[in-house]
Design a protein around this nucleic acid. Structure first.
Length: 284
DNA sequence: CCCACGACCTGCTGGC
DNA sequence: TGCCAGCAGGTCGTGG
């Protein structure tokens, strides 16, 4: 489901609502997530206090008082729900993991497609964890600089869109914000990364701006993104190209085009994001 | 090594 | 109305 702005929105909501809570009961309805919920899950987290909720890339890190954190990813369709102590909650389909706190609040992990995960990891092992160790820099931190981006793009022949979605190059950019950032830069998504490297400075600024703006709007809501309060984000109202096939470009009114790149939809304006090699008709 | 693709899942939409 | 193909915000393992 979510890219960096959505995950960060969830993080903030969780940190506000469950920090300081003590886990007094745990129920796992379905362990078959992307990484199976381990058998010892319940025992390991019972009695622990939530110290804080942090984030690395699109992973949420729920800091516990003991030796563990809970490492969670929302996949495509995962969400967390915080149920206030005053509310009687009726379970719904795909509520996989359920924590009850001493205060009476509850935290529920729900994920229809089960591409997400939630699992305990020893704090000491977190940095070297297989899921995290190959991740690139955070896009809103200084390590992700225009020069860094230029160097990384120069080394790759893959399409620039694939490059900026590669979590080893930079984390947090998914299909939506890749499309939006490339539009903002005026780069054709199919252009090889090494050719796009000359525009690295502008692309860098676009990635940062798109993620910042989305975060300021509370993330994007498509089918199933809700923040902790169950409210939608608003950034989807600002999409320039994503999901806008056949609609007029906001800049030049040319029809937005959808193509498929490595199995995913890419949306772009063929006029604003022209690339000489792809303007001709498809060769037969 | 680099890159593209299929697999992993369920649910929704649109066309017939 | 019902069915089926196609599509969905991510990531990983494989094979060319």
């Amino acid at each position: 489901m979510p890219e960096l702005p959505e995950v960060e929105t969830v993080r903030r909501g969780l940190d506000t609502h469950i920090r300081g809570e003590i886990i007094v009961s745990v129920r796992v309805a379905n362990r078959t997530l992307r990484q199976p919920v381990p058998k010892e899950f319940e025992k390991r987290i019972l009695g622990q206090k939530i110290e804080a909720v942090s984030r690395r890339a699109k992973y949420l890190v729920i800091q516990l008082s003991g030796d563990d954190v809970l490492l969670s990813h929302l996949g495509m369709s995962g969400c967390f729900k915080v149920i206030p102590e005053t509310e009687q909650y009726t379970p719904v389909a795909h509520d996989h993991v359920w924590l009850c706190f001493e205060s009476g609040k509850q935290l529920i992990y729900n994920d229809p497609r089960r591409f997400g995960m939630i699992l305990p990891v020893k704090k000491l092992d977190l940095a070297q964890h297989a899921l995290l160790e190959h991740l690139g820099p955070e896009p809103l931190e200084p390590a992700f600089s225009p020069l860094y981006l230029k160097r990384m793009l120069e080394a790759r022949k893959a399409p620039v869109k694939a490059a900026i979605m590669d979590q080893e190059l930079v984390v947090g950019v998914g299909n939506i914000y890749a499309c939006e950032a490339l539009f903002k830069t005026g780069l054709n998504p199919r252009m090889p990364a090494c050719e796009a490297a000359s525009k690295a400075k502008k692309l860098h600024a676009a990635i940062v701006a798109v993620l910042r703006d989305a975060l300021a709007s509370g993330g994007s809501s498509l089918k199933d993104f809700y923040n902790i309060e169950g409210k939608t984000g608003y950034f989807q109202h600002h999409f320039a190209v994503y999901g806008r096939e056949n609609a007029p470009c906001t800049a030049c009114a040319t029809e937005i085009v959808r193509i498929t790149q490595s199995g995913r939809s890419t949306f772009f304006c063929p006029r604003c994001q022209k690339w000489p090699q792809v303007t001709g008709r498809a060769k037969k």
